[in-house]
């Protein structure tokens, strides 16, 4: 769980970003100092300064395009997962038949390890974008479906009854009661998925690709270009954090009513 902002302003303020930044700087400093004092070779553990160097030196030649490729996979795959996840969750919510027919298979789809399925997809689809999108979407949609479905069915039945006496149809109850009520739960699923997305993309690239951060790492490791590997990791982490922050910002904007101020009147 992320720390909840106490106010909308605090979300983007020093209170929120200050402490993690201090920790980051402290670790980097200790790291830098340790490698210098202990005389660790760059290919074993590059100092943060070496990583920064690699980041700048290799940006134009390698990292820029690799970041772009991976970012595309992550964002597009995540978007597909959100779309498919919401669609499936709603279908399962509306139809008992769909629920009993599909739910076991949804769970089944999660029992296949990504490590195994990634090479298979690479065989079928080659080095293209498709297998990465499938991997990212496959890994990300499950938490979204489960969380959304939970949120939709957790709605107070008295609310539904009350809405029915106020001209509420199945659709208007869904739109005005169930969906908004499910949003906090949905966002929990989205945040989990956002954390998985880049892992899945890198797995896809490891199994067969011609570009992307995973590709860069796979090439750099045997060449002992450790600084480049770390630079790629840093970019990947930044990407994940950015996606996470984006989702959280959207959550704050959409379901502020659930988090701000006093507890809700349940």
């Amino acid at each position: 769980m992320t720390p909840r902002p106490t106010s909308r302003r605090g979300a983007w303020g020093v209170r929120r970003w200050g402490p993690p930044t201090v920790v980051l700087v402290a670790i980097a400093a200790a790291w830098e100092l340790a490698t210098a004092v202990l005389g660790v070779e760059d290919y074993i553990l590059p100092a943060p300064s070496a990583v920064a160097h690699a980041l700048v030196d290799r940006w134009d030649s390698t990292l820029a395009s690799a970041t772009w490729v991976t970012l595309t996979e992550v964002v597009a795959g995540f978007a597909i997962a959100v779309g498919a996840g919401l669609l499936i969750a709603c279908a399962l919510h509306f139809s008992r038949t769909a629920r009993s027919a599909l739910y076991p298979w949804l769970i089944g789809s999660q029992t296949v390890p990504v490590v195994v399925i990634a090479p298979v997809l690479a065989i079928i689809f080659g080095y293209s974008l498709t297998p990465k999108l499938i991997l990212v979407a496959l890994l990300c949609f499950f938490p979204i479906v489960v969380a959304t479905l939970d949120g939709l069915s957790a709605v107070d039945d008295d609310l539904r009854r009350m809405m029915r006496t106020l001209y509420g149809t199945r659709w208007s109850i869904f739109w005005r009661v169930e969906l908004p009520a499910a949003l906090p739960s949905l966002f929990t699923g989205l945040r989990l998925s956002a954390a998985y997305a880049s892992t899945a993309a890198v797995f896809g690239e490891y199994s067969g690709s011609s570009d992307g951060l995973g590709h860069v790492m796979r090439q750099a490791v045997p060449q002992l270009q450790s600084a480049l590997v770390f630079a790629a990791i840093a970019l990947l982490s930044a990407m994940s954090v950015a996606l996470f922050v984006l989702v959280t910002a959207l959550e704050t904007a959409l379901v502020g009513w659930a988090h701000e101020g006093k507890s809700t009147n349940r």
Binding site: D158, M162, T165, L166, S172, R176, V177, W257, T264, N265
Partner: peptide, 30 residues
């Protein structure tokens, strides 16, 4: 159902809607 409106013991207001939007929900439903 078309002739009756029910007011429950718990207010059952939608917590994400303003008081105004809560009061107006039946009109939106129509």
């Amino acid at each position: 159902l078309a002739r009756c409106a029910l007011m429950p013991q718990r207010d059952l207001l939608l917590p994400w809607r303003s008081a105004l939007a809560n009061a107006a929900v039946s009109l939106e439903n129509r």
